[in-house]
Write a protein that binds this DNA or RNA. Structure first.
Length: 544
DNA sequence: TCAAATGGCGCC
DNA sequence: AAAGGGCGCCATTTGA
């Protein structure tokens, strides 16, 4: 593994510390000691090889992840080739907004001059030194931003480690579930018997053949049967009085299992009893993680039975209860909502505080407020929220107005949302001219409202992601003191650690402590709580 | 014919 | 209870 160039930095943060040129893994191992922070271009590019070689590090500064956050604040998105961005900044040129570039692992030291013609070659160490100094300068004196960058860098380490370790996955249990639902595994290219049977029932109910996998065909069939529907989404179909509806809904459900998490998924993703998705920290504009491969963030609840701890171990499943409304209470400073958020079941408290004890109404209303619902029950319930929590509602309304007029908003620690694109600006520009047609006005309105919903949600979702990154990185650090403990899954506001039986209670306590620490760091002086309720289980399905 | 767009649905 | 935010993935459809 030659060619990696890392720079060691002293605890004092002196970037001019000794240089290390790593020629081999064995050579690197000598350099890895505790209490070092490594500076490197990207954990995603370097760390997988180290982890595979049995090397773990405690801390790092990840130039790529940091640069993405810093560039977001300059309105640059789409992850330009990192070296190009650093080089442009070094030369005082505008940073290229390279949306179409293929986002491979961001590589500072790859031979980019061969890929991107016309660029001068640069010394990687010089580039690294410049990048570090430049980033430090841009972060200087912004404690929130420094916290975000530290948490993001640590997330980069956790992501690589979790991808390497993988989520325990019992293939036999998964196979049994599939057989129960769909019948035996069909030959390649064939439908399982259960789907074929349902398809026949659907044909029979309509009186003519219909392909239930085709939305076009299915909608035409229902229209032919006298139901003037716009789409075939299941919540539309479920209200129709037609004999085809039950088998269609069941077909959709099972076809989803088959195509998304069927035998092909098992072959590709769960060999060896582990599911190894690739985690991409901060890859969602809001700062949430994304994953690549296997749909790791959409594991159906019904499949959680297949996630079982190794012998002698337990799973510690911890999630932050109703994180987003608590975050809204914190960032808005709404005293009434903060009082409600003192309750472990926030929605129940909300229900008792203006929704006549109706928890589901309270929940719908709050979600609607954060997502920008306009119509229906949720829209009507917004009035109650405005009356009870005017400060919180004004906060999200302000964010929405900012988005509608083309502005940007920030998460609590300072991640910026993308500015509107050229198409958006053009459409709004045209639609607001004196001589605009009705269609142009409607289009401009639509674009404005859509973006308002986006920025409204961004401030909440992004701040929740900030909190979660701090939580995760703190827990990762603390968990290193627990022998045999590994983080194995992370999903927005929920994580799973696999821990030796005897350490399960300790690890569970650590998830709680890390949540309290995250609250104190991200929302200092705020009275809100961000409770975490860890469950110690053998099987993920038993955690809820 | 093939790549991009769409519809749909799983998770938060 | 409603169909509002963010994603990834699959099968089908569209259109160049």
């Amino acid at each position: 593994m030659p060619g990696y160039q890392l720079q060691e930095v002293t605890e004092s943060g002196n970037a001019a510390g000794p240089r290390v040129t790593v020629e081999t893994m064995a050579g690197l191992a000598e350099w890895v000691t505790r209490d070092q922070r490594w500076l490197w271009d990207s954990a995603a590019a370097i760390y997988p090889a180290l982890v595979a070689a049995g090397i773990r590090i405690d801390r790092c500064h990840d130039i790529a992840l940091t640069e993405r956050i810093l560039l977001s604040r300059q309105g640059v998105f789409g992850l330009p080739v990192l070296a190009a961005a650093v080089r442009a900044r070094a030369m005082g040129e505008p940073v290229p907004d390279d949306r179409d570039d293929v986002p491979g692992p961001p590589a500072l030291f790859e031979a980019e001059s061969t890929r991107r013609t016309g660029q001068p070659d640069v010394d990687p160490i010089d580039t690294l030194q410049f990048a570090i100094a430049d980033q430090r300068r841009r972060i200087a004196n912004d404690r929130a931003l420094a916290l975000l960058v530290a948490a993001e860098s640590a997330s980069g380490l956790a992501a690589v480690e979790m991808g390497f370790v993988g989520l325990p996955w019992r293939v036999d249990i998964h196979q049994d579930l599939l057989t129960d639902l769909l019948g035996p595994r069909p030959p390649a290219g064939h439908r399982p018997v259960r789907l074929a049977t349902l398809s026949q029932e659907i044909d029979h109910a309509f009186g003519f053949p219909v392909n239930p996998d085709s939305a076009v065909d299915l909608r035409a069939a229902f229209r032919r049967a006298g139901f003037d529907i716009e789409s075939t989404r299941s919540w539309v179909l479920k209200d129709l009085d037609h004999p085809a509806v039950p088998p269609v809904l069941r077909y959709k459900e099972l076809a989803r299992v088959h195509s998304a998490n069927g035998w092909n998924w098992l072959d590709e993703w769960a060999r060896g009893g582990r599911f190894h998705p690739e985690y991409l920290p901060g890859a969602v504009v809001s700062g949430r993680w994304a994953t690549r491969g296997g749909g790791a963030l959409q594991i159906p609840r019904g499949l959680r039975k297949a996630v079982v701890a190794d012998p002698g171990h337990r799973l510690v499943v911890a999630d932050a209860a109703q994180l987003e409304p608590r975050v809204l209470a914190a960032i808005s400073g709404d005293a009434a909502l903060q009082r409600v958020s003192a309750d472990v079941d926030l929605y129940s408290a909300l229900a008792d505080d203006g929704f006549g004890g109706d928890r589901s109404h309270a929940k719908v209303a709050m979600l609607g407020a954060m997502y920008g619902a306009t119509s229906g029950e949720s829209g009507r319930l917004l009035g109650t929220l405005r009356q009870r929590y005017p400060v919180a509602m004004a906060y999200v309304e302000t964010a929405a107005r900012e988005g509608e007029r083309g502005g940007v908003v920030h998460s609590v620690l300072g991640r910026a949302c993308p500015p509107p694109g050229a198409g958006w600006r053009a459409a709004v520009e045209i639609g607001t001219q004196q001589d605009a047609t009705d269609a142009e006005r409607r289009r401009a309105d639509q674009f404005g409202r859509d973006r308002g919903r986006f920025t409204r949600n961004f401030v909440v979702q992004g701040s929740a992601a900030d909190w979660a990154a701090v939580w995760l990185s703190g827990l990762r650090r603390d968990l290193r003191a627990v022998p045999g403990a590994e983080l194995v899954f992370f999903q927005h506001d929920e994580l799973i650690a696999q821990v030796p039986v005897e350490s399960a209670e300790t690890a569970a306590d650590l998830t709680v402590a890390a949540a309290m620490a995250a609250k104190a760091l991200v929302f200092p002086r705020s009275p809100v709580t961000t409770p975490v309720l860890p469950k110690i289980v053998d099987c993920y399905a038993d955690a809820k």
